[in-house]
């Protein structure tokens, strides 16, 4: 892989610092020129309700009362995790449609995407969405901005430091120093590019405890892919060997002789 851990960039999300202002959602739309869709009030302030082709990030509003705090709201900023070992890239059949930038972002090339949507089935975090022409549409970690040394738009806008951008190693070290012994995404899937400083168990924040690429995709990658080469090679080699060692049937000649 092109990116070593040295120059890998990341976002560090700290839900406890988030005030739910959704500046990040607006900033993302603004930078990526994404339109707004009309949504319906479904009894929550969360809006839009989920990631969408025009919403690369959302703040998830969840009410999770704790013993000391009966009205605890958790604001969790959600987007592509920029996985080190990315299920979307593994399963994607189109060369160049998904690629890693040198900062470790998982970016997409619309022109090369064939719209098969297999990445939806390969992503452990249910992130990829589709635009009206069936092309993948998701957070790119603002690869165009970070390549120029800028911060991603969402991190740039965040007024409280709930979304911070920087060198992945430095962000991890600072979270550790701030007292988070465990950072979500530190080692999962060879390290995520979106890290979370959770005070409580990840599932309280609506995150999978042990995110993993689907078993079927791993089996396909490790077993079926090599088998399709060994199988073809074996069949061709077997045929040639049979021809050389045993040789063809000679029904016709036998008939002529008899």
């Amino acid at each position: 892989m092109a990116n070593t851990n040295e120059n890998r960039k990341a976002l560090l999300i700290s839900p406890e610092l988030c005030i739910g202002c959704r500046g990040c959602q607006t900033a993302c739309k603004n930078w990526n020129q994404l339109s707004s869709e009309k949504t319906k009030n479904s009894g929550t302030y969360q809006n839009p309700p989920d990631l969408a082709p025009t919403a690369y990030n959302i703040i998830r509003y969840s009410e999770v009362p704790s013993e000391s705090n009966p009205v605890r709201w958790l604001f969790v900023s959600r987007r592509c995790m920029h996985c080190g070992d990315a299920g979307c890239m593994k399963i994607c059949p189109a060369p160049g449609a998904l690629y890693k930038t040198k900062e470790g972002a998982v970016a997409a090339d619309r022109d090369k995407c064939i719209g098969c949507k297999l990445c939806v089935a390969g992503c452990p975090f249910n992130v990829p969405r589709y635009d009206s022409s069936n092309k993948i549409s998701k957070c790119t970690l603002c690869s165009d901005r970070i390549a120029e040394g800028l911060s991603p738009a969402c991190a740039q806008t965040c007024p409280t430091g709930a979304i911070r951008f920087g060198d992945r190693n430095e962000l991890l070290a600072s979270a550790k120093k701030a007292g988070y012994s465990k950072v979500y995404g530190e080692a999962d899937l060879t390290g995520l590019g979106t890290l979370y400083a959770f005070k409580d168990a990840p599932k309280i924040y609506g995150m999978d405890e042990n995110p993993a690429i689907p078993e079927s995709v791993i089996f396909w990658h490790n077993v079926l892919k090599p088998l399709s080469v060994i199988g073809l090679g074996g069949a061709v080699a077997g045929a040639l060997l049979h021809y050389a060692v045993i040789g063809p049937h000679k029904d016709d000649e036998e008939v002529k002789k008899s």
Binding site: S216, V217, L224, S228, G231, L232
Partner: peptide, 23 residues
Amino acid sequence: PGMRTLIQVSHLVHNLAFVLFVV
């Protein structure tokens, strides 16, 4: 597309059958 579990199973079946065909 988008029906995650169905597509995961289909992807597996499609590729298993592919191995059969190439042999």
